[in-house]
Nucleic acid binder design. Structure first.
Length: 1050
RNA sequence: GGGCCCGUAGCUUAGCAUGGUUGGAGCGCACGGCUGAUAACCGUGAGGUCACGCGUUCGAAUCGCGUCGGGCCCA
């Protein structure tokens, strides 16, 4: 049985009930297993980091995934969709450190690495559980029961295997490199982990004394004075022009000779507050190469006294500041590369904790570098080598987790040689299908083109240990690919591959020495990078990968261009040599209504829970899906969320409206199928069926290119425009028919077919609402039907039901109805009052409306609808206008009389005469140019335009029309009173109407039976001086007429 | 500083790949209608320098170049 649905759309109730149903009945698992054998669709979930709370962007991400997977599933695909969790790395270490009140790595060592690791694991797992629940609330169907987790041993093995493969292919390398370094976390961090924002730093101009030339200096500029102790060289651009200038302040004898790029001389001297200068020489940068200078702080730093400092050439030098760059190969990426190329010493007197080492000299040793900026400045000033100091606000990199400004230091690290396989990567991404196209062809391509070797080692604890063992005696390296391999090589059985247990495992080297694991762990980006095979339990399981890999589809936000899109590609290229995914949908970010990033500090963050709490998950889902193309950023708007909710509410009302009637009539869709009522279908029934199937086709097309916004907007338009505003209005009177009329049954069967199809179309996007409708309308009437709408096949558009001509005709009808209602408003005739005639006067060919004339009549409340031929209009009235400009010169003094006479003339006759060629008005001969004829719409007609013409509405009131109009006024008011009394639809009443106007009473008398029937009155009394008594008595004014109505239960 | 994307009514947006009759919607606002979906629903109206500038063209929201603003990524 179909159940009645009382009340408004209550998302919380609907969604809670549906979720329980899915869980109790294991619908998700059923949906997956029933598609076994279908075409395979391998989806890899980009694992969210286990932060504990999801935000709007994460919610959007999972909603996109869920909608696409539900759609795929309904289309018969066998889906692999393990949810994933990214659980290692610094963020969790930092959280646990905070929780334990730690400040440095030493605290962790003291506390015990094993206990620390346990805490991290525990923390990550609890965060995962919280987030799972939040995702489930959104209706996101992924395999939550058996997710892949980066902290599992199988997962660690996948990473190990990958590294072993890259080593076998010669792509793993140990290198001494300058890396981004977080001095707080005491670890290298990836480029992807550096966050840039504005920072105030010193801006200093320093004089480097040239060897053997008195008072002559090379000018450099830097924002990091702390790197000056590590200075080894200066770079100039080979093509720039440099000037040697003599500059002085007050005293010419105090003059100094400075070398500065020519265009920058004046600005540098201004910084140094010089009064005047003269140019001594000009030369190209190339001529400076090889020039020697003294380190400005050589007296403080013994090590610097051993180093020869020279000027070098480099293309990266820009014509800014002094046009010369101070080079500290131990503290800059370009510096390092230039240093290696030019054979400079890589001097790095800074330790992992960000403090100077003894190498920096006694004065600096032990000091934190960024805090030492001021001291370096002072020391330079003391030696007369500081030309100017100031401050600059610029973008500077920070550790993305602890927000500490990063430094660059040279350390030994492990690298994947991405630069060697860059071209292969570019070839591979060209084979991937990108949505939108530019995500791959422009954005990702650009990123790959600039990709450097990937530093995969981190000096931390909570991560996948690097499976690299090194012999202490001969230095030989061995990469272990699995737990089993480790056992075979070492004889040790390790319970958990994490640190610290794995650190204790030693291997016997072929040289007889002992091999120990390097203490590093993997960069956490490497974890998720191996997801596409780790989720298939490869290499532990060798079969799954053959069946599924590579991924058919992944989708993440555009920040993942440098993140997961890249890390996966890199890991896959070094191990398999091909891209790990076939298609990628890049989605946008959720911004606030102003288009600004949501951030806690601005306080403009909207959480998914907040939206779900107010409006429900289906509203949130439809909102994020329909608001933009997926690849554009969403400007979150509560107004639009409210709108989306309203649409669902209207859908809900449309869905529940016919139910009481169907129930009352005991309608059984199995006994009265659409096929059986074929003959009784009205044109509007065929129309809504056609529209429904056209909708299915539109959704299919849009989903083909992941245009989720088009799919969901088409659905919303259908619900609002076609279903609610039109079909429901048309079908209403038919549901009130009391007998077993075929017309009514046809309407029921149509509604049921439409709603059932709509539930299936809606299922991928608003799964809760769709399920609710399906359960009631389909399962409620057919217990044999599939248990859930999400088990159904996608509703392919039924071509035989699509009638595009009919759709065009109906579109025209709707336009005409709108125009008529416009005209009625102009003519002051409200819809409740019938009109005698509507004339459609098209200006171009319009579709035949034969079958839809009845719709037109009922919706315009008119007695007759006529369609005129193209260009034909109702007969117009003609008015005649004299033209004084012509009459004046012709008749002079008589002109006024002529004009008067013309005004009194019959326009029609005048026109006929003029056409005939002679028009005498008394004694006056009127020429054609003396008058003009104006066509006027007759008084009784009101006109309004529609796109292909004009409609004319005859608003003349006849007695019959007035009778009907008043009757409808009375009926409406009695209905209103019935409602007020809360009467059931089928209950009878007794009514008394007191009405003084005799004429109107006479009119109403003629409609007595009609009125009584409409309001279900067993007894209806009308008169002028009646005793008006009843359960409910109300006074009304209809137009300018006062009346009192009383009703009681009959 | 560089790459990519975006910028249309107060707000959210369609249209832009293939330039062509007065640039469509929804929300909000004003006025009106409907009243057996009713703490709903519908119509009409006002509201637009299509971010700005230059160019290509008979014709530009649409194509090109530049500027400004927003986003992501990089330096």
């Amino acid at each position: 049985m179909i159940s009645e649905v009382a009340g408004q759309y209550d998302a919380k109730e609907v969604e809670g009930r549906v979720r329980k149903f899915w869980e109790d009945r294991g619908i998700y698992a059923l949906a997956r297993t029933m598609r076994t054998g279908g075409r395979k669709f391998f989806f890899v979930d980009g694992p969210p980091y286990t932060t504990g709370r999801i935000h709007l962007g994460t919610a959007w991400n999972k909603i996109i995934k869920d909608s696409i997977l539900r759609y795929r599933s309904m289309n018969g695909f066998e889906i692999k969709d393990r949810a994933g969790w990214d659980m290692h790395g610094l963020p969790i270490e930092v959280k646990v450190e905070e929780h334990l009140g730690f400040e440095s790595k030493k605290d962790i060592e003291t506390y015990g690495v094993d206990r620390f690791i346990d805490k991290c694991k525990e923390f990550a797992l609890s965060q995962k559980d919280q987030m799972t629940e939040q995702f489930r609330t959104l209706g996101a169907w992924l395999n939550w029961e058996d997710p892949y987790m980066t902290l599992k041993d199988e997962y660690l093995e996948a990473a190990w295997w990958t590294l072993k493969r890259s080593d076998e292919r010669g792509l793993l390398e140990r290198g001494f490199r300058v890396v981004n370094w977080c001095p707080r976390c005491e670890t290298a961090i990836a480029d992807a982990e550096v966050e840039y924002w504005e920072e105030t730093d010193p801006s200093v101009y320093v004089k480097f004394p040239i060897v053997g030339e008195e008072k002559t200096f090379m000018m450099i500029w830097t924002t990091t004075p702390w790197t000056i102790p590590a200075n080894v060289g200066v770079a100039v651009h080979p093509d720039f022009e440099y000037s040697k200038v003599r500059a002085w302040k007050d005293d010419l004898d105090e003059a100094e000779i400075l070398i500065i790029a020519s265009p920058l001389v004046e600005s540098v001297l201004r910084e140094g507050r010089y009064k005047d200068y003269e140019v001594l020489d000009r030369f190209r940068g190339t001529e400076l190469a090889g020039l020697e200078y003294e380190h400005p702080l050589a007296d403080l730093i013994p090590a610097q006294r051993e180093i020869v400092h020279k000027i070098h050439l480099a293309d990266f030098v820009t014509a800014e500041n002094t046009g010369s760059v101070h080079i500290a190969p131990g503290h800059g990426l370009e510096d390092f590369e230039l240093g290696v190329a030019e054979g400079m010493e890589i001097f790095c007197p800074v330790g992992e904790d960000g403090r100077y080492t003894k190498e920096a000299g006694e004065k600096y040793a032990g000091k934190y570098v960024r805090a030492a900026n001021g001291e370096v400045d002072e020391d330079l000033a003391d030696r007369g080598l500081l030309l100017a100091e100031g401050e600059i606000v610029h973008r500077y990199g920070h550790c993305w987790r602890c927000k500490t400004p990063i430094i660059y230091i040279a350390t030994p690290q492990w690298f994947l040689k991405i630069s060697e396989i860059r071209d292969d990567m570019l070839d591979e991404i060209a084979k991937v299908k990108w949505y939108p196209d530019w995500a791959g062809s422009a954005r990702f391509r650009d990123w790959i083109s600039g990709a450097r070797d990937w530093c995969i080692s981190r000096q931390r604890y909570w991560g996948i240990p690097l499976p690299i063992w090194i012999c202490r005696d001969c230095g030989k390296k061995e990469v272990i690919g699995s737990m089993e391999e480790l056992r075979l090589r070492s004889g040790a059985v390790v319970e958990d591959l994490h640190r610290p247990a794995v650190d204790l495992v030693t291997i016997r080297c072929s040289c007889g020495g002992e091999m120990r694991r390097v203490p590093d762990v993997f960069d956490v980006w490497f974890d998720s990078a191996v997801a596409s095979w780790a989720t298939l339990n490869y290499p532990g399981d060798q079969e799954e990968i053959k069946e599924w890999w590579p991924a058919d589809f992944i989708t993440e936000g555009h920040d993942q261009t440098r993140g997961w899109f890249y890390s996966q590609l890199g890991a896959s290229m070094v191990s398999f040599g091909v891209a790990p995914y076939r298609s990628v949908l890049m989605h946008g970010f959720t911004l606030d209504d102003k288009g600004k990033k949501m951030s806690k500090s601005i306080g403009n963050v909207v959480s998914p829970e907040e939206v779900v709490g107010k409006f429900g998950a289906d509203t949130l889902r439809l909102y994020v899906l329909s608001s933009n193309a997926p690849w554009e950023d969403i400007h979150f708007s509560w107004d639009e969320v409210g709108n989306t909710n309203r649409m669902l509410n209207i859908l809900w009302n449309a869905y529940r409206f016919p139910l009481p009637y169907m129930i009352l009539d005991g309608f059984d869709p199995k006994r009265t199928t659409l096929d059986m009522v074929q003959e009784s279908l009205r044109p509007e029934d065929r129309w809504i069926l056609s529209r429904t199937n056209t909708l299915a086709a539109e959704v299919e097309t849009s989903m083909g290119s992941y245009q989720l916004q088009r799919a969901t907007r088409a659905i919303a338009d259908f619900v609002l425009e076609d279903l609610s505003r039109w079909y429901i209005q048309l079908v209403r009177p038919r549901t009130w028919i009391e007998t077993d009329d075929p017309d009514k049954l046809a309407a029921y069967a149509t509604i049921l077919e439409v709603m059932t199809t709509l539930a299936k179309i809606l299922a991928p996007f608003a799964p809760f609402t769709a399920e609710t409708i399906y359960q009631n309308l389909v399962r409620g009437t057919d217990p044999q039907a599939l248990e859930s709408v999400h088990l159904c096949n996608w509703q392919r558009p039924r071509e035989e039901l699509i009638d595009s001509t009919l759709e065009e005709e109906m579109a025209l009808v709707r336009e005409v109805v709108e125009a008529v209602s416009n005209a009625r408003q102009k003519g002051g005739r409200k819809l409740r009052w019938p009109v005698a005639e509507v004339t459609i006067s098209p200006k171009r060919e319009i579709p035949e409306l034969g079958g839809l004339l009845s719709v037109l009549k009922s919706q315009t409340n008119s007695k007759r609808v006529t369609v005129a031929a193209v260009g034909e209009m109702p007969e117009m009235e003609i008015a005649l206008n004299p033209v004084p400009k012509k009459i004046g010169p012709a008749f002079k003094g008589e002109a006024q009389k002529v004009i008067e006479a013309l005004k009194g003339a019959d326009p029609l006759e005048a026109r006929d005469r003029l056409i005939a060629g002679e028009f005498m008005l008394g004694p006056y001969a009127i020429a054609p140019d003396m008058v003009e004829f104006i066509e006027k719409i007759p008084e009784n007609l009101v006109a309004a335009d529609f796109s292909s013409g004009t409609v004319y509405v005859d608003v003349t009131l006849t007695e019959d029309l007035r009778a009907e109009g008043y009757a409808r006024e009375i009926i409406r008011r009695i209905q209103d009173m019935r409602k007020e009394m809360d009467l059931r639809v089928e209950e009878k009443i007794e009514a008394t109407i007191r009405l003084d106007d005799e004429v109107v009473r006479g009119l109403l008398e003629r409609m007595r039976d009609h009125i009584a029937a409409e309001v279900r009155a067993a007894r209806l009394e009308m008169g002028s001086d009646l005793q008006v008594r009843g359960f409910l008595v109300k006074e009304w004014s209809i137009e300018d007429l006062e009346t009192t109505i009383a009703i009681s239960r009959g």
